[in-house]
Structures are given as structure tokens and as C-alpha cells.
Amino acid sequence: MDRTFTAIDLFCGAGGLTEGLRQAGFHVLAGNDFDEVAGQTFAATHIDAKFVPGRVQDVSEATLLKAAGLRPGQLDCLVGGPPCQAFSVYNHQRGLHDERSQLFREYLRLVEGLNPRWVVMENVTGIMSAGGGEAVKAILSGLQKLGYYVEFRTLRTEDYGVPQERRRVVFIGNRIGMPIIWPEQTHGTSDGLKPFVTIQNAIGDLPVLENGEDLGVRPYRHAPKGDYQTMLREGSKRVLNHSAPRLGPINIERLKHIPQGGSWRDIPFDLLPEGMKKAKRSDHTKRYGRMSWDGLSCTVLTKCDIHWGAYIHPEQDRAITVREAARIQSFPDWFKFEGSRTEQYIQVGNAVPPLLGRKIGKALLETYAIDERHENQQPMRAVG
């Protein structure tokens, strides 16, 4: 393949999917998001892409085409993940009544206007059940009416080298009559697969911090150990976005009782928050969870809050930092997140892990290679 493959990223956030596609070999020309701080991160980390700010409802295909320097039908791939909170299992009020659940229709509107050769859409697994599966049916029928052949699967990020239990529903489609190639699993427990990437592999080389400590930009703890640390440290000499949130004295006392792999169940009853003293032992399985060096992370959310998940460092009595969350999401270390620490956590938690994005991008390019061989044997086709 001797040409550049182009993409536009809707709901781009800080640019996790954009970064993955870039690593795969795509040239992402533009990204859109309503979050201006995430847009600052996107613009600073992807200088070749034009950030288009604003609500997707207010963005026209003409605006995106102008930003990308393309005409309708010239774009290779339109990607995007409409905000997922309405479908998330963590949102107990989820459903199609939430206006955020309708943003996939804006994606379909822009697919029609841009007419890309390929489309990729991702979302949380809650989209499968919310509204009785009506959103999935609407996405499939909407793309099919626009002339796209579409498949969807639930992908587990740990199967592709991301040190995190994270499930995402991914839709892939094209209008050029090609089969869909899905990324092959590379990590797992079966013969022939690489071992899962662990928390130790992911964050073991990052500087030690006390609770609430912020030492600014810091050197690494030691030389990289293993392929994952080596990969994410490429192009970086210092550690960015690495400061510990300050937990109150009562939480620090609770943490002292929680071993690696432990949780709220290890906290003495008299130290439990009042609301958890009546909890069943089977409830709140991730609350006050401490990570294990040899395990995977739970899903990184927009708040790495120890009250809601296993976000306690394996050894240090503190919550994980933005950089540690970014490592678990597979962001490279040179990737600097802008804004307040709260805004940085949101950007990391909302992102598609770049490594998953890269795997998807590589699978698309593999299909492109088949398509090009097909085109070389066929008369020229009009784009449209």
C-alpha cells in the first residue's frame, strides 16, 4: 500500500482512538468533541489533525470536509464513540429516554453527508440491552440504508494487550463490498497467546508517591522492564500527569487493612462508611479494591475513585494517578493531558484505549490491502 489512509474521529475526546489509528498508519485529518479541555489535549497531541469544537448536533458535514480538505466520498474511514453514559451499566437510569443515547443518530447523519468508505463505531456493552436493544437495531438499519455492510462484536481489551478488563461493542462497516476483518486475539491463557499484560507490567516503573503528593514532572523509577513499558515510554524521558489525589485520614486508615486483590470486605466493620455497614458481602465487589501486581485492572472510569472501584495502588496507600490510569489505558507517556486533574481523569476514562484502536486500524488496513488487489483487477469505479 503506497497511499495515505484518512480518517475523521467524531466524539474524539482527548484522542485515544485517533492515537491508535495513527499508530496503525492512518492520517487522522480532523476530530470533533464538545469538551473544550479534551479538545486542547487532542490538538496538542495530534498536531496534524484539525480539532472542530462544539456539539455534534451543530457540526455539518461541510465543516468537517473543509477541516479535512476533502470532498464527499473521499474519506476512507469515519470513526467515533457517541457518549456512552446513557448506556453504561454504571448508570442505573440508562435507556433511550436519555438524550445522550440519541447521539448515534448524529453519527449516522454525518455518515450520510461524508460518505466514507468505512465506518467504525464503538460503545459500552450496555448499548446491547438498553431500550430492549433498539439502539443496536437502529444503528444497523441506519447504516444498511446508507449502503453499508455492517458487523458488530464485543471486544475485550485485555485480549489485545491492554492491562484492563474493559468490554466495548464495536461496529465495523463498509460500502465497497469487502468482508470485515476483525483483529485477532493476541493475549490470553490459551496456547499460542502471549500472557495478559499485568499491573506490574503497566505501572511498575513509575515514581513512588505518597498520598496527595505532587512532585511535578519526574524521572522514571528505573529502566523499562518488559515490552509494554518499553512501548509506552518511546519518545518520553520524563513522567507527566503523575500526582496523587489526597485521601482523608479515615480512608488512609481503611487502606492499611486492604491487601493486594482485597476490597471493602477487608476493612474492619467499625471503619466502614455508614452506607456500607448494611451491605451484603456479595455487593459492591470493586469498592475499595486494591490492585494486584500480577492481575488486570478493572475498567478505568472517568473517576478513579476508591469508593467505586479497584483504584488503590498495589503497594502504596493512595489512589492511582492520571498517568497510571493512562498507562492502564495504553496511552504513550509523551501524551500530556490538559486541564485540572479531575478533567484529566475524565479524558482518560472516556477514551478508547489506543492499543485497541491500533489493532482495529491494522485490521482495516489488512482489508484495504485486499481491496486494493481487487481494484487492480477491476475497471475504475466511481466514488459515490
Rank of each mutant, 00 (worst) to 15 (best):
residue 55 R to F: 05
residue 55 R to V: 08
residue 55 R to D: 13
residue 55 R to L: 10
residue 55 R to A: 15
residue 56 V to Q: 02
residue 56 V to D: 02
residue 57 Q to V: 15
residue 57 Q to C: 09
residue 58 D to T: 15
residue 58 D to P: 02
residue 58 D to S: 14
residue 58 D to G: 11
residue 58 D to I: 14
residue 58 D to R: 13
residue 58 D to Q: 15
residue 59 V to K: 05
residue 59 V to W: 13
residue 59 V to S: 11
residue 59 V to A: 11
residue 60 S to F: 05
residue 60 S to W: 07
residue 61 E to G: 15
residue 61 E to T: 13
residue 61 E to Q: 14
residue 62 A to S: 13
residue 62 A to T: 10
residue 62 A to N: 15
residue 62 A to C: 08
residue 63 T to G: 14
residue 63 T to S: 15
residue 64 L to N: 12
residue 64 L to R: 14
residue 64 L to E: 07
residue 65 L to R: 14
residue 66 K to I: 00
residue 66 K to T: 08
residue 66 K to E: 11
residue 67 A to W: 00
residue 67 A to Q: 01
residue 68 A to T: 00
residue 68 A to I: 03
residue 68 A to Y: 08
residue 69 G to L: 02
residue 69 G to R: 01
residue 69 G to C: 04
residue 69 G to E: 02
residue 69 G to A: 01
residue 70 L to T: 02
residue 70 L to E: 07
residue 70 L to V: 04
residue 71 R to V: 09
residue 71 R to D: 00
residue 71 R to A: 06
residue 72 P to E: 05
residue 72 P to S: 11
residue 72 P to V: 03
residue 73 G to K: 10
residue 73 G to N: 07
residue 74 Q to D: 08
residue 74 Q to M: 07
residue 74 Q to H: 10
residue 75 L to Y: 05
residue 75 L to T: 01
residue 75 L to G: 00
residue 76 D to W: 10
residue 76 D to Q: 04
residue 76 D to A: 00
residue 78 L to N: 08
residue 79 V to T: 00
residue 79 V to F: 01
residue 80 G to P: 03
residue 80 G to T: 04
residue 80 G to V: 00
residue 81 G to C: 07
residue 81 G to E: 05
residue 82 P to K: 10
residue 82 P to H: 06
residue 82 P to I: 06
residue 82 P to D: 10
residue 82 P to G: 05
residue 82 P to F: 04
residue 83 P to F: 00
residue 83 P to W: 01
residue 83 P to C: 09
residue 84 C to E: 09
residue 85 Q to C: 03
residue 86 A to L: 08
residue 87 F to L: 12
residue 87 F to P: 06
residue 87 F to W: 12
residue 87 F to T: 02
residue 88 S to K: 08
residue 89 V to G: 02
residue 89 V to I: 14
residue 89 V to C: 06
residue 90 Y to S: 12
residue 91 N to R: 13
residue 92 H to S: 09
